Amino acid sequence: MKSWTVGVVGVAGLVAIVAGAYSSREVLLAVAAVTAACVGIGWPHFLDIPAKKTLAALIGLPGVGSAVAATYLPAPGFLNWTPAFVAGGVMAVFVMQLIRGTGQAQRLESTLGSCAGVLLSCLGAGWIACARFNGIREMLVVAAISAAIALTAGLIRWPDRIVAPLGIIGAGLAGPLAGLVISDIAVLPAALVGVVVGAVLVSFRRLVIIRGETLNLPAALGMGLGPVSAVGSLAYFIDKLLLH
């Protein structure tokens, strides 16, 4: 698959998250769980590291657990268990690498890359926390629209020196505009969400370009949904710090 498939997968994931947020918490949980599973399955394929099936479970399961906890924990501690799931996933990755033994191929790359995958998988619970926070979903929509703009900009086959500023500025402008249209969210928090989300997503675009190979379906799913998973927690914490 071509690299632009990653952006399409990301936009589709954002649409599913917004639809889940406006349906029910069980639907949003299902979307978050599927996203974590896709990150778990796809991330080892994107990194092209050994033991893909085992690492898929070690990366995906903590993300699913973090999403379940964020769905059912009482307010305001929606993400209280997320660090524990991250730590558990990282420890499991290290134990697995120890079991593989010394001298195995790509052992260091597999360890570091898998730990990053665990973090991305678990941060997806932030979308659930964002939707549950005071029962207000507007910031979730603002973050999703900003992310969609950044991902769409990333589809343009121009050099990074053009696309990166375009994605960040576009996301930064889309946030306040979306906030003004759908809610009374202040311009500054919405703009900050847009800029931060845009910066994260265009950074991941660079990783796809550096890899420089055609991606298979699992790799495209993992790389498309991994950054989308991460920006959910960013939006939640910005919402919590600046709006309340």
Rank of each mutant, 00 (worst) to 15 (best):
L28Q: 06
V228D: 08
V6R: 01
V231G: 09
G117F: 01
A129N: 08
R137W: 04
R206S: 04
V93C: 06
A143I: 12
A36K: 09
G10F: 00
V193L: 06
L79R: 09
S233N: 06
V141M: 05
V200H: 11
I156K: 02
D239W: 06
G222W: 12
P83V: 04
A21R: 06
R25C: 00
W81R: 08
C38H: 03
R157Q: 13
G103S: 14
R205D: 14
G40W: 14
M96E: 15
V18T: 12
A190P: 03
L58R: 08
A147K: 05
L243H: 01
L112R: 11
N80I: 12
F46C: 01
S183N: 03
I149R: 07
G172S: 11
P83T: 08
L14Y: 05
R211L: 02
V181D: 01
L217H: 01
F237A: 04
S66P: 05
S203P: 00
G154P: 07
A219Q: 00
L242A: 13
T54W: 10
A178R: 00
V231T: 14
T111H: 07
I128Q: 09
P227C: 10
S23F: 08
S66K: 12
E109H: 10
A219D: 05
I210N: 00
R107I: 13
A186M: 08
V208M: 00
G60Y: 03
G60I: 07
P50Q: 01
R205A: 04
L140G: 15
A230R: 02
L28Y: 12
P189L: 09
C38D: 07
Q97V: 09
K2P: 13
A16S: 10
A51N: 09
N134C: 01
C130D: 15
V208S: 02
L112P: 00
L225V: 05
M1C: 01
W81A: 15
N134D: 13
S146D: 07
L166K: 12
A199C: 06
L221R: 06
T35I: 10
A92F: 13
F94D: 05
M96T: 04
F237G: 02
G13V: 11
